[in-house]
Amino acid sequence: MAAGGDHGSPDSYRSPLASRYASPEMCFVFSDRYKFRTWRQLWLWLAEAEQTLGLPITDEQIQEMKSNLENIDFKMAAEEEKRLRHDVMAHVHTFGHCCPKAAGIIHLGATSCYVGDNTDLIILRNALDLLLPKLARVISRLADFAKERASLPTLGFTHFQPAQLTTVGKRCCLWIQDLCMDLQNLKRVRDDLRFRGVKGTTGTQASFLQLFEGDDHKVEQLDKMVTEKAGFKRAFIITGQTYTRKVDIEVLSVLASLGASVHKICTDIRLLANLKEMEEPFEKQQIGSSAMPYKRNPMRSERCCSLARHLMTLVMDPLQTASVQWFERTLDDSANRRICLAEAFLTADTILNTLQNISEGLVVYPKVIERRIRQELPFMATENIIMAMVKAGGSRQDCHEKIRVLSQQAASVVKQEGGDNDLIERIQVDAYFSPIHSQLDHLLDPSSFTGRASQQVQRFLEEEVYPLLKPYESVMKVKAELCL
């Protein structure tokens, strides 16, 4: 049975990233139509530049190519590739079939990587351009969430054990800070992308030097003109047959890092959902379990974690691919890159769409948070109580021993009897502590235990987050809708 299948058929496997999760716009960027249309555009740009620099290419040939950029006979191309065992030459023939007058000058002087690699770089750039505003929107939604809850005390956790208090907004800023680093890295790697350009079979530009009869300047002009037509500021000066596969490492490393950030955020949300302090959106008709109707599973956060793990592992592909590119190139890269580049971007696209949807509907339960604080705060307040007693004339050592005994009794009630923490009640009825009984409410005010959390939130948002989001103001209103 021949390899390949009808990918629109229910009898043929289709990647869930495309069929179930990723956005239509990201799927289109990695589609065959987008790819092969870009090949034709690159052939047109090459012909236009070659004509401008004096090669015998007519206006009629150029116009014929322009008129057929979208006229792609995919069936013919597939048949040609089956016959020739070469995808680029299959599309040269297919393009030439609908451009008979231009057929002889299509791909003039070029090698397969002229269309293959340059198209990949265009796709990487455009895919990054799709991700950047999506990530900015996630940051914006979380920034709104953090600002609104900047002063809401909550129990902090280290080692997932109760620690000092923080605020809900401050905790959210930990998430935002990681995503801001990801946004900066995505922008950097996007701006650092260079075009492969017009380089020939081993990167020496020998074929173009021959076409222009040894004119170095025209060869350099050709490279520059096509690079500018493709919208790049610069091209690699040095290439082998391909652009260095280190570029793929750079791009997928940034995406993998984004995956790590999203995994951490969504894990926190899942843990908070278990504590009943916070939940992701839950639709009115949504079913959490087929057997347990009360369940409210954090399905979206779980999906993000599941896909983020996949995204983090994909960076190993370009690392290994770059390491086995012998001399000017081997074909070890080809099949692998067809999979890992598309999957990385479709996965990143999915987790950003999902995280935006989550961040637009996060639900906080202040009463649950308050109750958990009441359970733990008495123990945390013991040092403040000791200091207040010393100020009232008591002995630190005597007070410490009193607190120690009462704390152990209260802990026994919590752990052995399943009761509430009654340390404060014990202190309130103990005559030894009568000098500070009137101060206990103040000493137990949760806001006095959150330090500068709310001020940190305000400063972080104003100095770091809002300036970073400013270039994306025009796209901030787009909502994230999930079908599944």
Results as ranks from 00 to 15, higher is better:
Ala2Trp: 08
Ala2Lys: 14
Ala3Asn: 15
Gly4Ile: 15
Gly4Lys: 15
Asp6Trp: 08
Pro10Leu: 15
Asp11Gly: 09
Asp11Trp: 14
Tyr13Val: 15
Pro16Arg: 12
Ala18Asp: 12
Cys27Ser: 09
Phe30Gly: 00
Phe30Glu: 02
Asp32Trp: 06
Arg33Gln: 08
Arg37Ser: 09
Thr38His: 03
Leu44Tyr: 08
Glu48Phe: 03
Glu48Ile: 12
Glu50Trp: 04
Gln51Trp: 03
Thr52Asn: 11
Leu53Gln: 08
Leu53His: 04
Gly54Gln: 09
Gly54Asp: 10
Gly54His: 09
Leu55Trp: 07
Thr58Tyr: 10
Gln61Pro: 03
Gln61Tyr: 09
Ile62Trp: 05
Asn68Gly: 10
Leu69Thr: 13
Glu70Lys: 11
Asn71Arg: 09
Asp73Ser: 10
Met76Asp: 12
Ala77Asn: 13
Ala78Phe: 09
Glu79His: 10
Glu81Gly: 00
Lys82Tyr: 08
Lys82Ser: 10
Arg83Lys: 08
Leu84Arg: 11
Asp87Asn: 10
Val88Gly: 06
Met89Cys: 14
Gly96Lys: 04
Pro100Arg: 12
Lys101Arg: 12
Ala102Met: 07
Ala103Trp: 08
Ala103Ser: 11
His107Ser: 01
Gly109Thr: 03
Thr111Asp: 00
Ser112Val: 00
Ser112Thr: 01
Tyr114His: 03
Val115Phe: 00
Val115Ser: 08
Asn118Arg: 00
Ile123Glu: 07
Leu124His: 12
Leu128Met: 11
Leu128Cys: 09
Leu132Gly: 13
Ala136Arg: 12
Ile139Met: 08
Ile139Ser: 09
Asp144Asn: 14
Ala146Gly: 08
Lys147Leu: 11
Lys147Gln: 14
Arg149Gln: 11
Leu152Cys: 10
Ala163Asp: 03
Gln164Ile: 10
Gln164Ala: 13
Thr166Trp: 01
Val168Met: 07
Arg171Cys: 01
Cys172Thr: 12
Leu174Arg: 03
Asp178Ser: 07
Cys180Gln: 07
Asp182Gly: 03
Leu183Gly: 05
Leu183Glu: 08
Val189His: 06
Val189Asp: 06
Val189Ala: 09
Arg190Gly: 11
Arg190Phe: 13
Leu193Tyr: 07
Gly197Asn: 00
Val198Tyr: 04
Val198Gln: 06
Lys199Val: 04
Gly200Thr: 00
Gln205Tyr: 00
Gln205Ala: 15
Ala206Asn: 10
Ser207Glu: 04
Phe208Pro: 00
Leu209Lys: 09
Gln210Ser: 14
Leu211Val: 14
Leu211Phe: 07
Asp215Arg: 12
Lys224Tyr: 14
Met225Leu: 12
Val226Gly: 01
Thr227Glu: 02
Glu228Cys: 10
Ala230Val: 06
Lys233Gln: 07
Phe236Cys: 06
Thr239Asp: 00
Thr242Ser: 07
Thr244Trp: 03
Thr244Glu: 00
Lys264Gln: 01
Lys264Phe: 04
Ile265Ala: 13
Thr267Asp: 04
Ile269Leu: 06
Arg270Thr: 00
Met278His: 03
Glu279Gly: 06
Pro281Trp: 05
Lys284Ile: 15
Ile287Cys: 11
Ser289Lys: 01
Tyr294Pro: 01
Lys295Cys: 00
Pro298Arg: 01
Pro298Thr: 06
Ser301Tyr: 03
Leu307Gln: 15
Arg309Gln: 04
Arg309Met: 09
Leu311Thr: 01
Met312Ile: 11
Pro318Leu: 03
Leu319Trp: 02
Thr321Phe: 06
Val324Thr: 10
Trp326Pro: 00
Ser334Thr: 13
Ser334Arg: 03
Arg337Trp: 01
Arg337Lys: 12
Arg338Val: 01
Cys340Gly: 09
Glu343His: 10
Glu343Phe: 00
Glu343Thr: 12
Ala344Cys: 03
Ala344Pro: 06
Phe345His: 08
Asp349Gln: 10
Thr350Glu: 14
Thr350Ala: 14
Leu352His: 11
Asn353Thr: 08
Thr354Lys: 04
Gln356Ser: 09
Asn357Ile: 07
Ile358Phe: 07
Ser359Lys: 07
Val364Leu: 13
Tyr365His: 12
Lys367Gln: 10
Ile369Cys: 11
Glu370Tyr: 11
Arg372Ser: 05
Gln375Thr: 04
Thr382Gly: 05
Glu383Met: 03
Asn384Asp: 08
Met387Leu: 10
Met387Arg: 03
Ala388Gly: 08
Lys391Ser: 12
Ser395Val: 03
Gln397Leu: 07
Cys399Ser: 14
Cys399Met: 06
Cys399His: 11
Glu401His: 13
Lys402Tyr: 07
Lys402Trp: 01
Gln409Leu: 08
Ala411Glu: 06
Val413Ser: 13
Lys415Asp: 04
Gly419Glu: 13
Gly419Gln: 11
Leu423Ser: 05
Glu425Cys: 08
Ile427His: 05
Ile427Glu: 02
Ala431Val: 11
Tyr432Val: 08
Tyr432Thr: 09
Ser434Asn: 10
Pro435Gly: 08
His437Val: 10
Ser438Cys: 11
Asp441Ile: 08
Ser447Gln: 15
Arg452Leu: 09
Gln455Glu: 12
Gln458Glu: 12
Gln458Val: 13
Leu461Met: 11
Val465Glu: 03
Leu468Arg: 07
Leu469Asp: 02
Pro471Gly: 14
Glu473Asn: 15
Lys479Val: 14
Lys479Trp: 15
Glu481Pro: 15
